[in-house]
Design a protein around this nucleic acid. Structure first.
Lengths: 196, 196
DNA sequence: TTACAAACCTAATGCTTATTAGTTTTTGTA
DNA sequence: TACAAAAACTAATAAGCATTAGGTTTGTAA
């Protein structure tokens, strides 16, 4: 039988993870079977276990890769000398680009984390909660510095994160809007609103 | 064994559907088993089939009840004499209240529709798409009437719908913000933005 | 050419699933 | 009090699941 060709920068494990992300996105973690994943990879199901430990392990890999990417970016944004408003804008743009460039994985991290097993589930939620809190702090600082209107920072962060997440719908039935227009329009809406 | 007490306005089928919504929300449709549902209802699994046709049928019931509620409200909003901006605001508020008052069912309709079977899956997506298009039309009209800034109406609707959907996070770890403050802040943010 | 390891295969295990069949219990009514 | 219908139960079915065991093929390097 034909072997899989792992490219120079993608081990077979990476290929499997990538196919798993697409599959988990399309069918949901629970409904996706190892048989289907194997078929997508071009192999029989038991052969997958030469490269991975378990189905759960795949989900963990995907979820934490995404979570770590966001956390790392926030680290760097916090350490950049800039106004809070500029930082928030950078972060929104990073979220949008992540949604567009790593759609499958981000989608899975957003939708399927529920199926993580302990202690990964708890760790994921703690990391997520910490991320939100740091964003809220940025907003609180921005309000204190009069860069933002007086508003509830929790609601504002919620609104921003959720709006960006919603790009999954755009991705699903791709419109003929360029990524750049989309990014700019959404940033604009979220930062300035739409009412004249 | 003890019978279930269906209240005057809730047939046993309704009780099952309600428990199913909570279960599907917590574990996902695929991971939720009829055994678990039966336990939540207080009955053995096969007994459920005296009241419902199948597991799929439960999901269909939930998804279309929610979809129809939104469609109906939009019907009435379109037929009310009001500015487009006022209509949009009303619709946003309706979405927020639906999220807060019928959380389980809205959550399931938002997250688990993927597991609908044909032809229900197609019908659901068509209905959803139609709803979005009508919202976009409202926005286009509002822009033409100079009630809104010149912006991409598709992106604006996407942003609004997604932001409102994000209330599921608020619901999950309930904050000490009153529903009214939340509703007003979010409407404000979405309609006017946060930047000074 | 031979040897070794990595990666594949088939077959099997044991568990869980939704649902059906057939029977018994409960309930409401005459 | 008896009867019929509704709703519960137990037992069984058939399919699907992730994963393991054990043996075979393939690629690489001595």
């Amino acid at each position: 039988m034909a072997r899989i060709k792992p490219g120079k920068n993608a081990s077979k494990r990476d290929v499997i993870t990538q196919k798993a992300a697409a599959l988990f996105k399309n069918k949901g973690f629970s409904s996706a079977s190892m048989r289907e994943l194997a078929e997508a990879v071009g192999v029989e199901a038991p052969s997958l276990y030469n490269h991975i430990g378990s189905k759960s392990e795949l989900l963990q890999g995907i979820c934490f890769k995404v979570a770590n990417a966001f956390t790392s970016y926030l680290d760097s944004a916090e350490n950049t000398p800039a106004a809070n408003a500029a930082r928030i804008e950078q972060i929104i743009r990073f979220h949008i680009r992540m949604m567009l460039d790593h759609f499958d994985e981000v989608y899975v991290a957003n939708h399927e984390w529920k199926h993580l097993k302990e202690p990964y589930l708890s760790n994921f939620l703690i990391q997520r909660r910490g991320y939100e809190k740091r964003l809220i702090t940025l907003l609180v600082n921005g309000i204190a510095a009069k860069e933002f209107k007086q508003t509830n920072p929790y609601v504002a962060v919620l609104t921003i994160l959720s709006a960006v997440r919603g790009l999954e719908f755009w991705q699903q039935h791709k419109k003929n809007i360029s990524s750049q227009v989309l990014e700019d329009d959404m940033v604009n809406h979220l930062l300035k609103g739409i009412t004249k």
